[in-house]
């Protein structure tokens, strides 16, 4: 997924910071998706916060490896998992 798509995807959710975590709730046109909200841990919150139109996926990978004790392969995998979860929630 391109960063523009991720940034656009973010607009379909409402986020609320609670401590070091983030709750994100999808905007939804029916009752069936009401329970689709989920919480993001520190890593998920970091990806969410840095998913702006100024950052590419590679930029976020670099920011993650600078911030957390992980290699770029793990960071990329975390981002992919995160994006898949967001997309699945909106289906």
């Amino acid at each position: 997924m391109e960063i523009q798509s991720l940034y656009k995807l973010k607009t379909k959710f409402v986020a609320r910071e609670v401590g070091n975590e983030l709750i994100i709730v999808p905007l939804s046109g029916n009752v069936a998706q009401m329970n689709a909200l989920f919480t993001l841990n520190e890593t998920g919150k970091f990806i969410w916060d840095n998913a702006t139109d100024n950052n590419s996926i590679e930029d976020i990978v670099m920011l993650m490896t600078d911030t957390f004790d992980i290699d770029s392969q793990t960071a990329k995998k975390d981002i992919d998992t995160f994006l898949q979860k967001l997309e699945t929630t909106l289906v």
Partner: peptide, 19 residues
């Protein structure tokens, strides 16, 4: 924290078309 908030929210009656 977030787990407590999100788990209670899941049982609230919501019309989530409006931000």
């Amino acid at each position: 924290g977030a787990i407590a908030v999100s788990k209670v929210l899941a049982f609230c009656i919501q019309n989530n078309f409006d931000r």
